[in-house]
């Protein structure tokens, strides 16, 4: 088995146990979409686009009391080592659903009855924890579209690798490590909207990992804040004033 963590507690890519990969987020990157965001998270390269609120098609799917949220998580055929067939896999269908459910608590869907809000996530290159990077980018794209939201949704995937709890699981760590535990949440409302795990965790390990995910998610939140500030105001460090 590959040595994933060195004796000095460094990971394959040189990170410390609780260190995130570099994250770069830009909003407003597409012309046609009502809102968009592009995220590079480690070697993940993900484009999120939002359309809406708009007329709902097919019409019979429209909801009388709120907007219909539609979501598609899709991986480009060249995004992984082997070619991924272009038709949606079962994994992509499941992820589309849980990403939609992670975003939906944040959106004020009641404001737009009978309309549809479409969220497209296109994974151009995948490198572990892509669902969290996708949610982060999609929530920034929704904000960019000016869709009313109670909060942003951010997150972090933590994991257990060689019996150690690590933050921001990479591709190799996901495949060869013991546990992957993605968490997405709304930082202001303190509400977890995505939570999954696979692999064995004791009670203490879970609590440690969960806490780490929330702490690192808050760091990701600051990155999203900066990106939206940069995108809308073009400068950082806006202070209260008159």
């Amino acid at each position: 088995m590959t040595q994933l963590i060195s004796k000095k507690n460094l990971r394959l890519d040189g990170r410390k146990l609780d260190e995130l990969r570099p994250i770069k987020l830009t909003v407003g990157v597409l012309k046609n979409a009502d809102g968009s965001a592009y995220i590079e998270w480690g070697r993940n390269k993900i484009m999120a686009g939002v359309y809406g609120p708009k007329e709902c098609h097919p019409k019979h799917m429209a909801l009388p009391d709120r907007a219909l949220l539609k979501c598609r998580y899709h991986m480009a055929p060249f995004s992984v080592d082997d070619r991924k067939p272009p038709q949606p896999s079962r994994r992509e269908i499941e992820l589309s659903k849980i990403i939609r459910e992670a975003l939906s608590p944040a959106i004020v869907l009641e404001d737009f009855p009978r309309t549809a809000i479409e969220v497209y996530v296109e994974v151009l290159q995948s490198d572990g924890s892509s669902r969290i990077a996708s949610i982060t980018a999609a929530s920034a794209a929704l904000a960019d579209a000016g869709i009313p939201m109670r909060d942003l949704v951010v997150g972090c995937a933590v994991g257990k690798v060689q019996d150690k709890i690590v933050a921001d699981v990479s591709d190799t760590e996901d495949k060869e490590g013991q546990v992957d535990l993605p968490v997405a949440f709304m930082p202001n409302l303190n509400l977890i909207t995505l939570l999954q795990s696979d692999g064995a965790l004791t009670k203490d390990e879970f609590e440690k990992a969960f806490k780490l995910a929330l702490e690192k998610g808050r760091y990701v939140y600051e990155i999203v804040r900066d990106a939206l500030l940069e995108g809308f105001v073009g400068r950082k460090n806006e202070k209260e004033g008159n």
């Binding site: 459910e101 939906s104 303190n190 939570l195 999954q196 064995a200 965790l201 009670k203």
Partner: peptide, 19 residues
């Protein structure tokens, strides 16, 4: 020991509720 977990549904949980 916990070995798999999945949240579903269109709302969320507080961290305390999860624990």
């Amino acid at each position: 020991e916990l070995c798999a977990m999945q949240k579903g549904g269109t709302f969320g949980f507080t961290p305390e509720e999860i624990l």
